[in-house]
Design a protein around this nucleic acid. Structure first.
Ligand code: MN
Ligand code: MN
Ligand code: ZN
Ligand code: ZN
Lengths: 125, 125
DNA sequence: TAGTTATTGCGAAATAATCGCATTTATATG
DNA sequence: CATATAAATGCGATTATTTCGCAATAACTA
């Protein structure tokens, strides 16, 4: 199944790239001018994930957030990195902080999901 | 509001302590012999969290899991530590691996939620 | 231009967690 | 032990998030 270019795809990706932060489905739906169906947005995002264009973060609120992969040339962001969720402004961003760990023998890590919560630099002041 | 001892409270806590792993509401409901209402289980667990008896983990499936705090005398587990979710047996456990990070200036971390996913030592075979 | 099929829209469905409110029950007090 | 207070519970409804089935649409290929 080869991918096709659609206005929806482009609009979602452009929004994520421009904002530079991780966004949830409903936020994406709000910020995009044109009307895009809820299920479609999820499908577009999940396809982006499959293609390695964006990555999914599950925050402490249990919701899914999506951010473009390595939007800056920071080497840290290309690998596993921490995410920060501000409990004030609700924004979620990729931190340029890599996740380091070593698991006990026998464990095989397939994916990593690390989210720090608190107040971001804008809201701390 | 002072706390009262109830059979439900004791049953839930005993289950968590005995198993030593993190469990979701539905798993707890299944494993407890007596019938306990769904909402009640959530309320009991959230009260435990408030009291610092258990801690909540949000996994990549978006669900909440609860584990007793520092069930062993491992110093690592008393602080922030990684969790492991096996995609085979679905169990979630506290890893004796501490989470180390340093956030950019201005950020204030209030809580940490780190979950590694993959196959556990039993399922890696 | 026509055919193939990826993509979308729509509604329903599945799942998780919470809430309001009446009822029960743990605990303190006389 | 009897009684009062309010914490805890049960139940149903409710909210929220995400997915699914299927028919309709539209992107790409030839
Ligand atoms: Mn990220
Ligand atoms: Mn833990
Ligand atoms: Zn903020
Ligand atoms: Zn396993």
């Amino acid at each position: 199944m080869e991918r096709r270019n659609t206005p929806t795809k482009e609009a979602v990706l452009e929004l994520l790239v421009k904002s530079g932060e991780a966004m949830s489905r409903d936020t994406i739906e709000q910020k995009i001018t044109q009307n895009i169906n809820r299920a479609t947005i999820y499908r577009v995002l999940n396809r982006f994930c499959e293609d390695g264009v964006v990555h999914k973060i599950v925050a402490e609120d249990g919701k899914q957030y999506f951010a473009v992969c390595a939007n800056c040339d920071d080497k840290v962001l290309s690998g596993h990195h921490f995410h920060f969720r501000c409990i004030e402004c609700e924004t979620i961003e990729c931190l340029p902080v890599s996740v380091n760990f070593s698991v006990p023998n026998g464990y095989q890590v397939a994916s990593v999901n690390c989210v720090l919560s608190g107040t971001c630099k804008d809201c701390s002041r």
